[in-house]
Amino acid sequence: MKNVLWFLAGIAGGFVVAHMMNKDPRGHELLAEVDARITEFTDRIGDAYREQEARFSGLVDEVKDAAAGAAESVRATAADAADDVADAARKTTD
């Protein structure tokens, strides 16, 4: 519990210091630069995430298509086998 109290005090102290820095023109400029760098970083991370998401989406679509093709092939093979069995049964009874 003591660690949580220190953590919360550190956060509150950080806000107070940031507020005091923001009042000073140099501090305001520094905080604006930090904010711009953070924004640039988050934009890059977001772009990379969207790129990976698109890449995975493409892979998933390819796998779905391959699975559908395999299922169709199995269905066709099973239908052919059933037809062969039916033909063989007819020949046996004839």
Rank of each mutant, 00 (worst) to 15 (best):
V4W: 03
R50I: 13
G10N: 13
W6Y: 08
A36I: 01
F15T: 02
K64V: 12
A67S: 09
G58D: 14
Y49E: 03
V63W: 04
L5D: 03
A79G: 03
E29A: 15
G14M: 03
E40N: 14
V17A: 14
A88Q: 14
G69Y: 01
L31K: 01
F15S: 01
T92N: 14
A68Q: 11
V63N: 13
K2Q: 04
R90T: 09
E62R: 15
R26P: 00
A70T: 09
D87H: 07
A48V: 05
W6A: 05
M1E: 10
V4H: 05
L30I: 03
D43H: 11
R26T: 10
D83G: 03
R44V: 04
A9T: 06
D61G: 05
L5F: 04
D80N: 13
K64L: 06
A18P: 01
D80M: 06
G14N: 05
K23F: 07
S73K: 15
D24S: 07
P25C: 12
H19L: 08
D65Y: 07
G27R: 00
L31I: 05
A36K: 14
I38S: 02
Y49M: 09
M20P: 00
R75D: 10
G46Q: 13
D94S: 13
E33H: 14
T39M: 12
D94A: 12
I45E: 09
G14S: 15
D80Y: 05
H28N: 09
S73V: 03
V60C: 09
A76V: 13
I45Q: 06
Q52E: 15
A89D: 14
A18R: 00
Y49V: 11
K64N: 15
A82F: 02
K23V: 13
L31V: 03
R90E: 15
M21C: 03
A88C: 04
T92L: 15
I38D: 07
V17Y: 01
S73M: 11
E51S: 14
T42D: 05
W6K: 08
T42G: 06
S73L: 14
G58I: 08
F56Y: 10
L5G: 00
D84G: 05
R26F: 06
D24N: 14
G10R: 02
N3W: 02
R55V: 10
D43V: 07
G10M: 04
G13M: 10
T93S: 11
G13Q: 01
M20Y: 09
V16W: 10
Q52M: 11
A9V: 01
R50F: 13
T39Q: 09
R75Q: 08
M20I: 11
S73R: 15
V60T: 14
A71L: 10
A9I: 06
E51M: 05
I45T: 10
T77Y: 13
A36Q: 10
A67D: 08
F15H: 03
E29L: 07
G10C: 01
D94V: 08
D24V: 06
A54V: 04
A70L: 12
E62I: 04
